[in-house]
Design a protein around this nucleic acid. Sequence first.
DNA 1: GCTGTTTATTCAAATGTTTTATTATTAAAT
DNA 2: ATTTAATAATAAAACATTTGAATAAACAGC
Lengths: 342, 342
Amino acid sequence: MAQKVTIRDVAKQAGVSVASVSYAINNVDKINPETRTRILKVIKELDYKPSLMARCLSNGNSKLIGITLPLTEVGDIPGSLLKNPFFGEFISGVESVTRNQGYDILFTGVETDEQCRDWIQRRKLDGIIMLGVYPKSFFVEVKKLGVPIVLIDAYEDYAKEFHRVMLEDEAGGYQATRYLIEKGHEKIAFVTGSIKHSRLNYRRYQGYQRALKEAGLKERPDDYFEYPVSFQGGYRAAMDMIEKGCDATAIFAIADIMAIGMLKAFRENGKDVPGDYSIIGFDDIQFDEYVTPGLTTMHQNSMQKGSISAEMILEDIQHGRSEGKTVVLKPKLVERESVKQL
Amino acid sequence: MAQKVTIRDVAKQAGVSVASVSYAINNVDKINPETRTRILKVIKELDYKPSLMARCLSNGNSKLIGITLPLTEVGDIPGSLLKNPFFGEFISGVESVTRNQGYDILFTGVETDEQCRDWIQRRKLDGIIMLGVYPKSFFVEVKKLGVPIVLIDAYEDYAKEFHRVMLEDEAGGYQATRYLIEKGHEKIAFVTGSIKHSRLNYRRYQGYQRALKEAGLKERPDDYFEYPVSFQGGYRAAMDMIEKGCDATAIFAIADIMAIGMLKAFRENGKDVPGDYSIIGFDDIQFDEYVTPGLTTMHQNSMQKGSISAEMILEDIQHGRSEGKTVVLKPKLVERESVKQL
DNA sequence: GCTGTTTATTCAAATGTTTTATTATTAAAT
DNA sequence: ATTTAATAATAAAACATTTGAATAAACAGC
């Protein structure tokens, strides 16, 4: 149970007090450089490693940052947090900046705010980064804990009290649709996850609508397909399209994983992309360029999203919390082969 | 700094000692059921959450499980831990079993054993699951800490002292190659990551060799391509093949991500799969069925690998460590469209 | 030689739990 | 009534660190 070698052992061995050892480790300038190096030598000899647990208890810093992932959003693959490659990339981004600062990251799927608050408090998280769609009350409850928070892709107005990093999703949706229009398409299907529950999806939808309207095109209800944001969801959307004999010539899918799922359905049913349907996706996940045809999409840098979030959290942790800052990234069109000129 | 509401506050409010509160929380039967429910009520009222840090300090259990990922193996995408979808699936598997037991999981990329031991000790990890290829000394050093360990895909003999979960890689390699031979192929290229540093790759290679030999086929040096295990690596391998005018009719790639990278190179260079080259991969990642042509591969259940590892670790943590147990999973052929009959 | 200041070191309290040993209470057995 | 045994509750030590306050030593200025 007990730790093999503690600060006490080091103190005894070096013939100083535990306080001095603590000062030596933490670079406090209350100590004579000579004794300091002596202590450091003993530390090395004894292979002493300070306990982060004890440290946390004493000074309140757990050096732990939490990431919450949506548990329900993906819908058709329960229990599997990391199947959407976006999350993996995001987490990698976070990790890349926290790791040199001595922080570890913890993640979990979360459903209720109670569950989330519970987690933060028990683990004494120094900060938390929240992905996923939750009701208003959720963030407010969590905020009461006074722990630095960064919200990802949160659009609600009250979110101005929070730090946020997000994407110009409306503009992205607009650009994607606009691109299809410029390529001569007039009947453009829209494939999405829930628009009611996800602000993010909704904003991309708004962009879609704006581009249509601006070009004098009517939004056709039969062009709207709502399915879970997953490969399977996209697959089912495409099957639905085929069955209904949708006569759109182009498709805007709000997530690449959906677009890729569609590609498979089309291939299986003898529909050519971009021959029969042009498709544009959103996100630019790593796989887009390995799929056939290469998926044209709106690029967002997920790793960067992660690293920026990490920097914001760290800033707050180290220099006290500032008022809600927001970073909004711009999506960028990446042309591959899934869209053709009409 | 200090926790808002502690066990002391609960004790005071309920008019009992802190010990009683502790007993109440931990279901120790030293307490009168009535007082217990009274205490529980107070806990709810005050929204008290026990500190896992303090708990750890006292009883030595951090309720934290570490996962180490190889930092160098992937080679061409440094700093990005989770780009290989295998890891995401594996971690999801671990998480799915640990989460209901109150454990959180921590992961990190790790290069030296010193770094790894450091991590375990500072964080007081209750157990550690190790992925990736390391020199012998590594595991031995880590083992000295006395923390439960599970090794993933470790083949070394000394590993019998450790718990391991692994795959019948040699058999998998054999089956894959055998399948190609049965389809009439006699010139079969082998695409792999380092065979010297990765025991896993090596065993798949052995299977390849065995199948060849058994069928009376000669292994041709020009059919061997070694590149990093990544999309890019596969891409480069394929370009290399094309440049050298390799006349193999089929390819066995030891990882799907390499196979998929190859698909892209072939597509870009007007080579048809399976027309010009038949390809079989290994792993069966989620993307295989969305790629064109659908990738025939040797399936391994990565999530299951994760969940089994988690169960082994938990078993050790809760009931003391037993002698090195090994679970070996069997790969299974999944036929899609990337291999044709010659 | 005295005072005041800087520098180095130590003491001891505080952090939030669990758990061992101890005491108090009640019930059962003599 | 008195001891025995079981049950409930408590006090206090232990866990490994940080940190504010206290102390000691060295040293400068007068």
